[in-house]
Amino acid sequence: MTLARLCGSLLKKYRHGLFAVLTITGLVAPAKAATLTVYAAMGYGARLAHAFSQATGIRVNLVHLSTGPLLARVQAEAARPQWDVLWFDGNLAMREFAHRRILACGWRPAVDYLPQGRALLPPDRCYYPVGVTLAGVVLVNERRLPQKAWPRRWSDLLDRSLRDKVGMDNPAISGPTYPFVAGMMQHLGTAGGKRYFSRLKANGLRVFPRNSATLRALQYGQIDVAVVQSSAALGMAARHPGLRVLAPSPSILLPSDIAIGAGVHGPKLRAARRFVQYVLSPAGQKILLTDKATADSNYEPLLARVHPPAVLAPVAGVHALVLDPAKWGPMEPAIVNWFTAHVTG
């Protein structure tokens, strides 16, 4: 008996047992059940998923990751997506995923968007805006930095008095930071933007992986000024007295978006659409805006009859730039590579 025949007969005889063993040990990726798998970078995702399951009876497997690792997972799984719904801050990455045809397009949830929300809804209906934050605001440690040194304009960060005292996130790792870098390049021109970040680097800019690391550095006194996403800055300032949020003009508008996978069909597609609809419903929005456990609740809603939280006051009225995702999305690899080569090190 040859080895091949022996293996063949053994496999035939024990195929069910083998499959069970492989599935249990995860050697083959488990087949998708009726459960809806949601990849979310939003802190309130778990609470919302629980409420949705209670309201609809549809089970949700919520996978919570930071935006950077989440985007990496989605890219890595592009050939075999293991998610049904995707939800994170940043329409530039969403546009890129739509371009790669991994998002289901064409459907629009039946919700009453405000004009700003309608403007952010893409014409191909591949993803749906949930709310907006600002990609970069300034968080200052009042106890360590005298008021006259507070940076009120972006150019103030280049001042020698702030040498080695400013930190920001790495756009290659932190999802919300690429829109900030791209926004500065839209504001100053690509060459001017590069010159600005190079000068920041020359002034001792410290680049940390993501919001949390930058905020920790501020908390531990390693830096005195942090450039981070507005929701994170507002959340940190609310928890730790002595921190002040400043919003230099212009700020860059950062929509959080939700999307459904292109490979989702049948009952699961219906469940996914119900989930999106629920997120954008008044009941869903109430959950998102009142979750005190996460800074992600500090966003401006885009739906009629949903009111923004009072905590947004320090960043209200700031002039916000809106980036064109079709232009800046495809430029992300080049700009991020430039940033890594010239600023991160």
Partner: peptide
């Protein structure tokens, strides 16, 4: 390393395959 902004080679390798864009 990551917390202090001192990027080391092993972390750079991880970030190249765990960030956007994958490289």
């Amino acid at each position: 390393g990551a917390g202090s902004g001192t990027v080391l080679a092993t972390y750079a390798i991880e970030q190249a395959v765990n960030a956007m864009p994958l490289n």
